[in-house]
Amino acid sequence: RAHSNPFSDHQLEYPLSPGDMEWKLLYPAFYDESTGLMTKQVTIADIGCGFGGLLVDLSPQFPDKLILGMEIRVQVTNYVEDRIIALRANNAETSAYQNISVLRGNAMKFLPNFFHKAQLEKMFFCFPDPHFKQRKHKARIITNTLLSEYAYVLKEGGVVYTITDVEDLHNWMKKHLEEHPLFERLSSQWEEQDACVQIMRNATEEGKKVARKQGDKFIACFKRLPTPTII
């Protein structure tokens, strides 16, 4: 299936709270048996990770950071899971790809169940479902009300990355992020020097498809601003 309705009641598994999440199942190499604790926390999230292309390319770029892909479609998640298992097995001697993992989830509803306040450093939104119809705009992954939730799980200075081949959606995401008091657009100079932007442009399956069709790719990145004084 190409789409999944984010509003319907899926049979999802999610922890009662971030403290209840068993990360050791996803990143066994970062679990310390002696203390029973994780040695690292997830700090990079790819929301709607699709077939996992971005995760695979981000992995060697950030070997000491845990990267999580979230995907709502069951079969796609299973595929990424298998892909990561294979990558880990084929690179057993270098222990590569231990820092990426995937889980099936609805990030629009349950992000705060997985991540503590200010836990994340980077969030990626790559080629999200455009939901063209006006009345389906609330189903878009970027809305002004959802942005407050992303700002909650992001730490100050954290970055939201967006890329799409649909200009309308690009303008929509840009508008909402620019209007939100907790986000500020990063300059094109910043985009040019950022490694993640290059990876995002070329890594994902969607990105490759667009490139083959010689379509446009629209990128916009935003910084999580410090929380202002509470009035």
Partner: peptide
């Protein structure tokens, strides 16, 4: 309806202060 209780600031409602986790 998704077990969530959210605490946001007012009138700066875009700042989520806290989530109260406990309902199943």
């Amino acid at each position: 309806r998704d077990e969530h209780i959210r605490v946001s600031h007012y009138p700066q409602c875009y700042i989520i202060d806290n989530m109260l986790f406990g309902h199943k």
